[in-house]
Structure formats: structure tokens, C-alpha cells
């Protein structure tokens, strides 16, 4: 009732091309999910490692690049106007900044995480924040630092290494001063 194709009858087994291709595809897929898993399981940036580079355009239109800030201790704070704990630590951050404002080797940088410009500026005015702040455009910086939420603060030493990570809000000025002084040494 059915006719066998003579051409297929001659072939024995599976062609090496097909087998190789199939296994190669599978291997590629496995590598892909392995990398995906690594990424999912990796925590945020690691203390002691070089901190990810960033470029931030502040609300005043000034551009800050992490390479140009080498030689300074950077306190990188992620916040949002819709985040209540951020508002709690805002005063501490500003007070701490006032202690270093005259020093050339410390800079505070605020990054507004998924915030609207109006709300963010209002927040800055309300808390009288005087150090540079800017929006995290396309959430590039927060993705590079793999932040888990806001507020989070990353302290980077003069050589561009991450020396301290704070998840959640600072609870006092002393706490901030301590980590900045530690980074300065």
C-alpha cells in the first residue's frame, strides 16, 4: 500500500550533520540557561571588585562620568521620590555631605531610580539636597549595579573599587561618615 522511497532506504542512521547540529544547538541552549542562571543568582555588585562604570546627566544638565571621578571617594545613592525610606535617610545624607563638601576627594551622587522628573525635583527641593542628582535614564545604572530596590547606597574608593554596600536606608549621619572615612583610608 505504501511505497518506500529508494533514496531514503540507502541511508543508514542519522546524518552526522544533523546529529552534530542538534547537539550543538542543545549545547548552546544549555550554555544560555547556565549564564541566565548565573545572572539570576549573582547578587548585587561585590565589595572589593571594581565598581561598574556609570554616566549620569544631572537634573541641572551637568554630566558626571565615573572615570572622571577617579581619585575621589564616590557615595552613589539610589533613591526615588515614591519611596518612603528614602525620604527618611535624605536628611542624613545631606548632613553627611555638608561635612565633606569642601573636600576635593569626596563626592556624593544621587541617582533617581524610575522617577518622574517633576516628582524627583520636588523631592530634592523638599529635602534640600545639594549634591549632584540625576535620573537613571533607561535604568542603565541600576541594572549595572543590580540593585534590588531603593534606597541602596554604594561607596566606591579612590581606585574605583567598591568598598561598601548599604541595602536599605542609613539610620544616622555617623553611619555614613564612618563608611566614607573608612573608604578614604
Amino acid at each position: 500500500m505504501q511505497t518506500e522511497q529508494p533514496s531514503t532506504k540507502q541511508r543508514q542512521g542519522v546524518s552526522p550533520w544533523m546529529m552534530g547540529g542538534a547537539f550543538l544547538l542543545l549545547a548552546g541552549f544549555l550554555v544560555f540557561i547556565w549564564l541566565g542562571l548565573q545572572r539570576a543568582q549573582a547578587g548585587p555588585a561585590v565589595v572589593g571588585q571594581p565598581a561598574p562604570d556609570f554616566e549620569l546627566t544631572t537634573f541641572d544638565g551637568q554630566t558626571l562620568r565615573s572615570e572622571e571621578l577617579r581619585g575621589k571617594v564616590i557615595v552613589l545613592n539610589f533613591w526615588a521620590s515614591w519611596c518612603d525610606p528614602c525620604a527618611e535617610e535624605a536628611a542624613f545624607l545631606e548632613q553627611a555631605w555638608q561635612r565633606y563638601v569642601r573636600r576635593e576627594d569626596v563626592i556624593f551622587v544621587g541617582v533617581a531610580y524610575v522617577d518622574s522628573e517633576t516628582e524627583a525635583k520636588r523631592y530634592l527641593a523638599q529635602h534640600q539636597v545639594s549634591y549632584p542628582n540625576g535620573p537613571d535614564l533607561r535604568t542603565v545604572i541600576s541594572q549595572a549595579y543590580r540593585i534590588r530596590g531603593v534606597p541602596e547606597t554604594y561607596v566606591i574608593d579612590k581606585n574605583g573599587r567598591l568598598t561598601y554596600i548599604k541595602i536599605g536606608p542609613f539610620v544616622s549621619v555617623q553611619e555614613i561618615v564612618q563608611v566614607v572615612d573608612a573608604a578614604l583610608q
Partner: peptide
């Protein structure tokens, strides 16, 4: 929105 908050 894409420019501010990313493609997601």
C-alpha cells in the same frame, strides 16, 4: 518612558 525607564 522608554528613554527614562528603559525598554522594559
Amino acid at each position: 518612558f522608554a528613554a527614562q525607564y528603559g525598554d522594559r
